[in-house]
Design a protein around this nucleic acid. Sequence first.
DNA 1: AAAATACGTCAGTTATGTTGACTTATTTCG
DNA 2: CGAAATAAGTCAACATAACTGACGTATTTT
Lengths: 158, 158
Amino acid sequence: MSKKDINSPRFDLIELFFFAYRDFTGDPDVLLDELGFGRAHHRVLHFVHRNPGIRVSDLLDILKITKQSLGRVLKQLVDEDFICQEPGALDRRQRLLYTTEKGTKFCAQLSKLQTQRINKAISLMPDGSDDIVRQFLYLMIDENDRSEVARLIGKETD
Amino acid sequence: MSKKDINSPRFDLIELFFFAYRDFTGDPDVLLDELGFGRAHHRVLHFVHRNPGIRVSDLLDILKITKQSLGRVLKQLVDEDFICQEPGALDRRQRLLYTTEKGTKFCAQLSKLQTQRINKAISLMPDGSDDIVRQFLYLMIDENDRSEVARLIGKETD
DNA sequence: AAAATACGTCAGTTATGTTGACTTATTTCG
DNA sequence: CGAAATAAGTCAACATAACTGACGTATTTT
């Protein structure tokens, strides 16, 4: 059996994933910090921006946190006019979530930073690499959740 | 200009990265929880295992956390016999860190879970995909830190 | 002998998550 | 119609893992 057989731990990929994700999430941290926000705010803002009119309970499903945790950061984002709430037209118990203009602009700033990092990386790689990377990240997700994620990211954005 | 030009935010990769990393780190959480440990313990244990005899200050550099934060989890890992400390032979101020047999075994369990997830994903992808993925993750790291990471992951493990 | 270094520790704070219990408004269903 | 279910919010208490700042101790360097 060879030294690097099928059961060898993939320390390289494990560690690269750790460092890459840390720096990837580190970019927005600076801007968030200036507004007194953290990563929790970023996640909420991002998924509201990407899913305008999302219900609170669906946002909880995506983020997999509790109502109370979400409540705290959501309240701050609403108070500081990054997110607004509208009662549902069909079901008025719902408080559908939207980013305000301020929220949308800030969100664009944050995703621009992350996109720049991604584009710089991809630009140094062979053609078609982005598809490979996309496929890898998709397959790293729990099998049960893949279809829901596919639905989420399948949105057109303009 | 096309609808998806060079400046379009890469929402798909941004979100895939988020979900993939969450599930990737979620695997070990179950085992860690049984021992009353968290992800902080995992990171410390992992990097000590991969860098036997590492100095505390070098571990701090890798993890980019404070001495006080490390101190808490390290103390628990030492108290519960997952990590041991030896005074440096040349400089006795140092407390060089090693995993105990117990720590080594537990570490192997954790990286096995993560390796399985990686191998399952890679096995469904074209040949050579792992090199592309490795390259991508490497290029996502801050340029300044890449050489140090390269040194870290370049280790032979058996 | 003094200064620098490696490490540890005490005290207090913050961000983000948790559980459990309860309220209010609204919709659904027998 | 009235009871039950649902969507959302809130209060309180707690856990984890990070942070800052200050200080102590052993050891090495200058």
